[in-house]
């Protein structure tokens, strides 16, 4: 599975994945993830690159009980569409939470976690996952 074990590919994506780099359409206002040169809603090419906020709410979620090979060791785990504070929607894994604790509208915050590993001796691909907000401050 060469595509899974590409180092340049993971490297190229690192900033987008670590920091959630998205786009904002200057024409229709849509904010989206990841960044690309044209707006997925209106097609405008007038798009600016922005770092997305790491706070949001669970819009929809499901529990993956039959995982792709690369995620087998995490089964069962929760994946969700997370709606960030500025309206961008990010597909992400939820972490530090049991499946039966998740609900639509749950407040979550982004943390850096392991996603995929290119085998036991390959590189580790990190990215942002979301988990229930840890209390006691932390407003950014």
């Amino acid at each position: 599975m060469s595509y899974m074990n590409s180092v340049p590919r993971a490297w190229r994506e690192r900033v987008t994945k670590y920091r959630l780099i998205g786009g904002r359409c200057k024409k229709c206002g849509k904010v989206f993830y990841p960044y690309r040169g044209s707006c997925p809603r209106c097609g405008s090419d007038d798009v600016e690159r922005i770092e997305l906020p790491k706070r949001g709410r669970v819009k929809y979620f499901t529990v993956v009980r039959s995982a792709p090979a690369e995620f087998k060791r995490y089964e069962p785990y929760v994946v969700a569409l997370v709606e960030l504070e500025n309206g961008a929607i990010v597909p992400a894994q939820l972490t530090d939470v049991d499946a039966d604790e998740v609900y639509e509208g749950m407040e979550v915050e982004g943390v850096l976690r392991r996603y995929r590993e290119q085998g036991e001796d390959g590189i580790i691909e990190y990215g942002v996952k979301f988990r229930p907000v840890v209390g006691g401050g932390g407003e950014q």
Partner: peptide, 18 residues
């Protein structure tokens, strides 16, 4: 399962940055 000393460090550092 998805944590290591690096992800721990990231969050501690993020709190320090805040």
């Amino acid at each position: 399962l998805d944590e290591d000393s690096l992800t721990h460090a990231y969050e501690a550092a993020l709190n320090a940055l805040r």
